[in-house]
Design a protein around this nucleic acid. Structure first.
Lengths: 231, 231
DNA sequence: ATTTGTGAAACCGTTCACAGCA
DNA sequence: TGCTGTGAACGGTTTCACAAAT
């Protein structure tokens, strides 16, 4: 027993989310020929505290050198293994609109380990064309099996696309459409809402004290209904 | 004293991030003509627990009816006010590539309250064209003032774009490029990395026990260097 | 009976402070 | 001396359990 697989099972979601950030910096250093890097350097470049960086990296197994930082090559390797970049997985993408194309062409969406296994759309004008070296297929065709299915369609058809992904035994779905999907247990779904960060940003801005200093045209345009204090 | 503004100041970031999700469900109910909705219903449709839903909504001021749920119209209104949809703010967008166009055309990126105040790009082929009713301007022109500046450019030019947004007194920046920005204190920056959710999803999938049940082609392709247990 | 609203406990992630090593 | 690694304290969010309200 005792599977052969890592300790990495214990990494928290926030940590996993930060690893790609660290790797970006590490890659820059690797290309510069620098051999060692310190947690403080990574911290300054990412805006994350040095302590958190060290906690995260310690979770990959202790391999830094006290007094001398981390070996750049080894750090890069460890992060890659933790993120599964050394394993291969395949991705299909349904909905080749602006967002779909943005993802396909993005330098850091399909990174090491990922193989683009299929592109699907409804638009006859796009079907058959080559995008990033892949022929766009009709959504009518049966979906190719893959590790992850990415949905970039309008919300109205997202559920039907998800159903077909489930039918094709695709175990994980990344949903960029603003819709909640019903899937059988066992299928993992991750949602990405491009508007949420904007909403959080606007919320903080509108509630910040400095907002009154801004240009008149930017201040509240409508009288605001106050939420009354406890009755 | 006692500013005229809401209690909403106290909402946590996770709560703010969930409000748009609740609102989606609430809007569906409103369109169906349903008048009341329960926390459990919202919970089932969003995958969030009912208790968390109630905590979040209680933060908007208690207005549910015990035994009978929430009034759909009122709930919708409260969420809108909390998110600032009743106040107006303006947005400029720099980098009108696939991602930029996806955001502009997305039904839920620029929601109520937001005004698109300007589009900028470097590409002469795009400059001057109309997108969503707005003329794309040259990035050479001085940036229009706005509440939020959205960066959809490659990482290599993101910092220079941010500098120009700061010069135009834009107080908040939403950065979709994979780069960390240096801005003066007082300027708020929010980062969005489209690849992170994919990485988190793949991480969970690769580390899940069911992974072994999958098709052979999807299992690890390369022997994996194990991270050694503590020395 | 049903569902909200909320103290209190449990949980999780970050930060502090410093011990451990090179 | 310098920087990593980590126990312990902290702060914040979620969950539990139940009282309050209709």
């Amino acid at each position: 027993m005792t599977s052969h697989r890592p300790r990495t099972r214990r990494l928290s979601d926030p940590t996993i989310g930060r690893l790609p950030l660290y790797q970006r910096i590490v890659n820059e250093f690797a290309q510069n020929g620098t051999e060692r890097i310190e947690s403080l350097t990574i911290a300054e470049r990412t805006g994350i505290t040095a302590t958190t960086v060290r906690r995260d990296l310690a979770g990959l197994g202790p391999f830094g050198t006290r007094g001398a930082g981390y070996d750049v090559a080894q750090l890069n390797e460890r992060i890659s293994v933790a993120l599964g970049h050394d394993r291969s997985y395949s991705v299909i993408l349904v909905g080749i609109g602006n967002l779909g194309q943005a993802l396909i062409n993005s330098s850091n969406f399909l990174i090491r380990g990922a193989t683009l296994a299929g592109l699907y759309d409804v638009d006859p004008a796009i079907i058959g064309t080559l995008i990033a070296g892949h022929v766009v297929r009709s959504i009518e065709e049966p979906l190719q099996h893959a590790t992850v299915g990415v949905i970039c369609t309008p919300a109205s058809v997202a559920q039907s696309v998800a159903d077909r992904m489930v039918a094709a035994h695709i175990p994980a779905i990344l949903n960029f459409s603003p819709s909640v999907l019903q899937v059988p247990i066992g299928t993992k779904v991750q949602y990405v809402d491009l508007s949420i960060e904007l909403q959080v940003l606007v919320f903080h801005l509108l509630n910040s004290v400095n907002f009154a200093d801004m240009q008149p045209s930017l201040r509240p345009a409508t009288p605001v209904t106050d939420i009354p204090p406890r009755s």
